[in-house]
């Protein structure tokens, strides 16, 4: 039973780590690009929003599966 909790923790933890690194890079690049070309700000914001949607797809599914493991499989 403990293995299920460890699996859920790994899914959520590694998903959050990947999303955190990705969002950090995304936000940093957005600020850098806007500082270089402020007239492109709206376009860059749109691109960031689209990339954020692509970036968090896997961690979101991971959260769903981890909750299933915790509350249905282990519970």
């Amino acid at each position: 039973m403990e293995m299920v909790f460890i699996a859920a923790a790994l899914i959520i933890g590694l998903g959050a780590l990947g999303a955190g690194i990705g969002f950090g890079l995304l936000g940093g690049k957005l600020l850098e690009s806007t500082a270089r070309q402020p007239e492109m700000a709206n376009q860059l914001q749109t691109k960031t929003f689209i990339m954020a949607g692509l970036l968090d797809a896997v961690p979101m599914i991971g959260v769903g599966i981890a909750m299933y493991l915790i509350f249905v499989v282990a519970g």
Partner: peptide, 30 residues
Amino acid sequence: VEGARNMSRMVGNLFRAESIKIALTAVFFA
């Protein structure tokens, strides 16, 4: 928020919103 002047606020909002989105999803599933 939009525009070059508010970009650092927008990035702050982006990070906060992403964290809360994942937390909300987990809470809803639970």
